[in-house]
Design a protein around this nucleic acid. Structure first.
Lengths: 224, 224
DNA sequence: TGAATAGTGTCTTTCAGACAATATGCC
DNA sequence: GGCATATTGTCTGAAAGACACTATTCA
């Protein structure tokens, strides 16, 4: 049986969404991947995704994937790019609209869903070979994430609602891949006026407790 | 006859590309629009676009539209965003991948192609009502254009290969919609090191001739 | 009191922005 | 010479970056 049959017989491409789910875990930026249970690329790791239903919007489809995969709702979700090379899927013409999501928690269990044998978090700088053009998609997501970190407040979406300034700085350092000066970082963050101190202290360590802050608005803002 | 029939009977969405073609003409930013010759939105103005052929990439489809519409090749072309609301086209499920193009010439004749009664340039701040969700698409393209102008060298793609600094400044002023200081503008542009003086002067006016410059690289570069 | 992290200020450099006079070529 | 545009420099304020010590809590 020709594997292309079910995808191209109508001359309409299939449309999928792929969702890159990012989180900070163990002081690393991690991405959720699934191990494919079916051909093509059976047993390869891939970005979770699926077909767009005929009556749902692209964003709804991405939300649905996100919930199936990581069980999370109301997290940061943004359309990344649409990948449509005719050769990107050996089964036939599949156009995928890639989204990326940022989840604040440090300990999200993943569920292997349809087509997936297994789901796991991978540090983005220690990845297995990926199926399809998923390496390129991931690459592009990382670039977007880095640049958006510099001129927006999306970092809030990788943090719990209250956090120490040191934690915020770690998010920046992990994603940008470089060390930042503590004094300059705090000066800059506080001068943006997007943070406010809460009345709480973090007393979790055997040392001076840290002030906890929150973002005034948990909505993406551009500052340039 | 149910107008949805031909688009949804297979449960696959249709995929189109829409291409926003921008140029500077008469000291205004203009966009190429077509007047639709068929329902829905018959006689409304719309962004030119068409179906993605089953064997061409999205970018190839956009190139093809661009050539059919404006007869231009090798101009700046960038994917903008993918619009996929299930209600965006009354005929059924149509997902469109929007691209925008920047053409350097001041006098591009447009050809009315399939489905179009007429094609015309419109100043972006004097637009007719647009079909579908095309107003939103155009809005988003303008935002992208403005922000990219600030941190990249895409302005080169709206100019001929050699140009006066004054012309370059006009491109910025027209797109950003504000006046810029001539001395500061020139200082900044020259300090970026992306421009080089040619050996030619522009002697077209009854006044002191201007030095002609060119971009060292006619490839999009980010400077941030 | 020692360990561990929190918190803070100054100086320098760089860049953006305000601002106006002179230069050159053509008619 | 008059007109029209081209070309050029200084000052000021803001923000980024380099840099090191004190403060606080807990064990």
């Amino acid at each position: 049986m020709n594997p292309k049959t079910d995808l191209t017989q109508y001359d309409h491409p299939s449309v999928t969404v792929d969702v890159l789910v990012f989180a900070i875990m163990d002081d690393q930026l991690k991405v959720a991947l699934i191990k494919r249970g079916t051909a093509p690329f059976k047993n390869s790791w891939a970005i979770p995704g699926g077909f767009v239903h005929i009556d749902e919007s692209l964003e709804e489809a991405a939300q649905r994937e996100l919930e199936e995969e990581a069980g999370v709702k109301s997290v940061y979700l943004e359309q990344l790019y649409t990948f449509g090379d005719p050769e990107r899927d050996p089964r036939g013409r599949v156009i995928t609209v890639a989204y990326y999501a940022l989840v604040p928690d440090h300990d999200i269990p993943l569920s292997a869903s349809t087509d997936a044998r297994e789901a796991r978090w991978f540090a983005v700088d220690d990845l297995p070979p990926l199926a399809f053009d998923h390496k390129e998609i991931l690459q592009q997501a990382l670039e977007r994430l880095k640049s958006k970190l510099e001129y927006s407040n999306i970092a809030y979406s990788l943090l719990p609602s209250k956090f120490r300034l040191t934690e915020l700085q770690q998010v920046y350092e992990i994603i940008l891949g470089c060390q930042l000066d503590k004094r300059n970082f705090r000066k800059r963050m506080l001068s943006l006026g997007l943070l406010e101190a809460t009345r709480q202290l973090d007393k979790s360590g055997a040392h001076r407790p840290a002030q906890l802050y929150r973002f005034k608005k948990r909505k993406m803002m551009i500052f340039r």
